[in-house]
Design a protein around this nucleic acid. Sequence first.
DNA 1: AGCAATTTTAAACAAACGTTTAAAACAGAG
DNA 2: CTCTGTTTTAAACGTTTGTTTAAAATTGCT
Lengths: 217, 217
Amino acid sequence: MLKLTKLKADSSTEQKIRDAAKEVFIAKGFSGCTSREIAKAAGMNVALVNYYFRSKTALFKIIFEAAMGDFLLSMLDVFNTDLPLEEKLRNYLDREYEFLAKYPEIPSFIINEMGRKDGVHIDNTAVFECIEHTGIFAECKVEQAAGRMREIDITSITVLMMSNCQFPFMAAAVIKQVHGISDEQYEKQLVQHKQIVTDMLIGYLFPGSISNQKTQK
Amino acid sequence: MLKLTKLKADSSTEQKIRDAAKEVFIAKGFSGCTSREIAKAAGMNVALVNYYFRSKTALFKIIFEAAMGDFLLSMLDVFNTDLPLEEKLRNYLDREYEFLAKYPEIPSFIINEMGRKDGVHIDNTAVFECIEHTGIFAECKVEQAAGRMREIDITSITVLMMSNCQFPFMAAAVIKQVHGISDEQYEKQLVQHKQIVTDMLIGYLFPGSISNQKTQK
DNA sequence: AGCAATTTTAAACAAACGTTTAAAACAGAG
DNA sequence: CTCTGTTTTAAACGTTTGTTTAAAATTGCT
């Protein structure tokens, strides 16, 4: 055999570094952590980080794109169902809060790193068309034309959804400090905030819907 | 005279460093920039940063608290008017979008730095009571008791407001890249998004208000 | 002018950074 | 066991980091 010994390598060490890097990068950002910190978190020597992944920058790109992917995947398979639009959006909100409860730091991570002057740049067409391919946008336009959905451009709809899902997790530290509430209290807060957000968004986007006639409280 | 010469010092150099630090810190965060970068932005020698402000950390605290103050002040004098609550919230949304158009990076800055494990910690009671002292929360409870405002806890109300104001500015880079729109296009987007947010929030918080009967576009 | 205090500078400091090296430890095949 | 390629280690690399130093320039006062 020529060089098939290489195939077994990708299990332990490389994956441990990848996992540690994911945790550290997402928690602290690219410039907020060091190669040695990642190595230590993985229980490895510093040199191994560059042995498996050429450089800190190269490793970061891998982690970032994976995070971006996880985030996208979570929304895509909600949109790929064939429920009515309103139910799809309800499910999206459910899923989003569920995802964010599990990975609350990912939106900050993506937003910060993409906002940096010298930050990462994604293939914009890929992400957008990935979502558009689910037909969700077309579906919105159909509902809007039928008068069942409020006439708002797609961009604003997505910003409304993202704002009300992601911000409560991104600003958790500030909100907890300002309102002087504990971690457990804020978790409960988030549960009821999800309900409020759902009521508000569905009520606003589908003004005539039967599901929000006198559903206040 | 003993040592009154010191009084004139605070005009030029010190202020230039402060201004440069504000710009650089807010744009890149504490760990995203260096002392030398700040000095260069101010056109000064590195040592002067530590001559006027003991350390990078000390300078950062000053900048952070100033940013926090600016942000608070902007909302406080809206709440200190004696307009009806609904008008107050409308004005708040106006002011917030105006402020954020001018300083779009401040929310990210505050949220990121306060979210860091070893990040800055504010005097939580100070900020909260500063807002409470305007009577805005009491006013909400009065309106809620009178059945004119939806029964939602104060925390959720503030989170709703902040989410829909701050997030569109914080995530600007991501949204622009994903939707493939230019800076100018996104500015227009924000103008109409403000209107949408206002309609939605007012409509949700004051369900019976005359100002949102059939105001859909 | 001359003097004392303040402000600015260039240089240096140790520590930490990302990255590379060269040798050691390990694995599998003959 | 030996040999070969892969994985891991400790050490060092040249920079850059925040900070300090000590000398130079500047200022304000008499």
